[in-house]
Design a protein around this nucleic acid. Structure first.
Length: 435
RNA sequence: GUGGAUGUAGCUCAGUUGGUUAGAGCAUCAGAUUGUGGCUCUGGGGGUCGUGGGUUCAAAUCCCAUCAUCCACCCCA
């Protein structure tokens, strides 16, 4: 046995960056998920579930070969047929794949989906970052209208609001369409080139592959150098310019405050036009709770018909972290309405059928499974904060009654056995299936 | 992949310049009350001190390695 324990400790622990969500935590997840679904449905986004793994090629093409996610963070493995598969590192590419595969563009011009899903990235864990993490998000496919961008942002903010989060910052930027981006890229490189040697090694490496990411660098000397860098928003072509100002106009009409931030460059290659991020000061270094934007080129990139689209993704773990930092209560562990204390062999034989009867009325009913003393069972009932205890012993069984103790009042009375379910249902309010 | 901090009971933590049976609070179980919870009191169970090696008469304590966790970098939700 000692050896077994040793083996367990050394080899069978959960893997780095993963988490067991125990009952004392899972009810919070259920609470956040319930709000998410409720709001999504109200905005008429419908759920899409896709497999946890996909062809590796989907993400390589969708997210971009040069991104960190694809180049070093994916969980990739070969199946028996030697196909290269990958655990989803993000949801958008998977949703778009399903959208194309099921020819959903042919059903209606605009499709709206939401998801709540586990995702996998092989990074080193830290506050707010796990290797298996969870996101909820939404995608609106088929519209290039600025109102679609605005609805997506509104939807994300609405969910946070209904959860009760406050003091979130919404940062907004536009990375333009493909033409704007290409032109700006050269303008930016022209600015950086003469002072490239002053930038940090990471930025020097980014210069050729992804110069726009240099704007997002947090190294002090780099942020200093970037102060004077040309801003993309001044170098957008007319169409991009117009879209961006329409989005801002729509957000203003919706009363959603935002900050323009020309350094906001998201890490996935598929973004065009609008990009945004929602951050909270309540988090650590990983302060983004939600990110998103428009991705008009992704459908084509994946071999589908062109389809403009916009979406957001929010971190479940981070959302819950912010909520807890704010002291919000996120639901509660289901209460026990009635605890059945069975005394003696005969009563124990009756216990399960009685529980079943009570549960059928919607009551949350629990009993003891250890043949313990009345005292121990009462203690257990108290620990569970049971509202009522049914005492069932030979005494009661002989006379066809049950003793019902009200744990709050510390009073008890005998009730005819047949009347007990109705009696308790009435006493506890209704005995429906709450929480 | 890199850096820093931390690993002692289920949890939160004490443990002196190395010294003999490693402690506390909470939790848990039982008793005080042989069919009655909370409060109180009494008692019990539960630790190869992360793991492996080294130094020493003697290691939770010192040294080395290793693993894990946390935080940070990179990047992202």
């Amino acid at each position: 046995m000692i050896n077994q324990r040793k083996i367990f400790l050394k080899e069978l622990q959960r893997i780095k960056g993963t988490q067991d969500i125990l009952p004392e935590e899972s009810y919070k997840w259920q609470f956040v998920e319930a709000i998410t679904r409720r709001v999504m449905h109200r905005y008429h986004y419908l759920e899409m579930r896709t497999p946890v793994f996909e062809m590796t090629e989907l993400f390589a093409r969708g997210i971009g070969q040069l991104t960190d996610i694809v180049s070093k963070e994916m969980y990739t493995f070969a199946d028996r047929g030697k196909k290269s598969l990958t655990l989803k590192p993000e949801m958008t590419a998977a949703i778009m794949r399903a959208f194309i595969e099921h020819k959903m563009y042919a059903r209606q011009p605009v499709s709206k989906f939401y998801y709540i899903a586990p995702l996998f990235r092989q990074e080193n864990p830290q506050a707010g970052r796990q290797r298996q993490f969870h996101q909820f998000g939404a995608e609106l496919i088929g519209s290039s209208d600025a109102r679609a961008d605005a609805e997506i942002i509104d939807l994300a903010m609405q969910i946070f609001t209904e959860i009760g989060l406050n003091q979130l910052q919404l940062r907004l930027n536009s990375v333009g369409d493909a033409d704007s981006r290409k032109a700006y890229r050269e303008i930016l490189k022209d600015y950086i080139r003469p002072r490239l040697d002053q930038y940090c090694p990471d930025c020097q490496r980014r210069f050729e592959d992804n110069p726009m990411r240099i704007l997002d660098c947090k190294v002090e000397t780099c942020t200093g150098l970037n102060q004077e860098a040309p801003k993309i928003t001044y170098h957008l072509n007319q169409a991009s310019q117009a879209h961006y100002s329409q989005v801002k106009d729509q957000l203003t009409r919706l009363g959603i405050p935002f900050t323009e931030d020309s350094s906001l460059v998201r890490g996935l290659d598929y973004y065009t036009h609008t990009v945004f991020e929602v951050t909270s000061g309540a988090l650590g270094a990983q302060n983004a709770i939600c990110g998103g934007g428009r991705y008009d080129l992704l459908a084509e990139e994946l071999g589908g018909q062109p389809a403009p689209a916009v979406g957001f993704a929010a971190g479940m773990e981070r959302t819950i972290m912010v909520a807890e930092a704010q002291g919000l209560s996120l639901g509660r562990i289901p209460a026990v309405d009635v605890f059945l204390a069975a005394l003696g062999e005969q009563a124990q034989n009756e216990a399960l059928i009685w529980l079943k009867k009570l549960r059928a009325t919607g009551l949350h009913a629990e009993t003891d499974f250890q043949n313990r003393s009345v005292k121990a069972q009462m203690r257990e009932a108290n620990r569970l904060e049971a509202r009522f205890v049914i005492l069932m012993g030979d005494n009661e069984l002989e006379r066809g009654v049950l003793t019902i103790k009200d744990m709050q009042q510390s009073s008890q009375e005998e009730i005819a056995a047949a009347d007990v379910p109705g009696y308790l249902q009435q006493k506890t309010g209704n005995g429906d299936d709450r929480a």
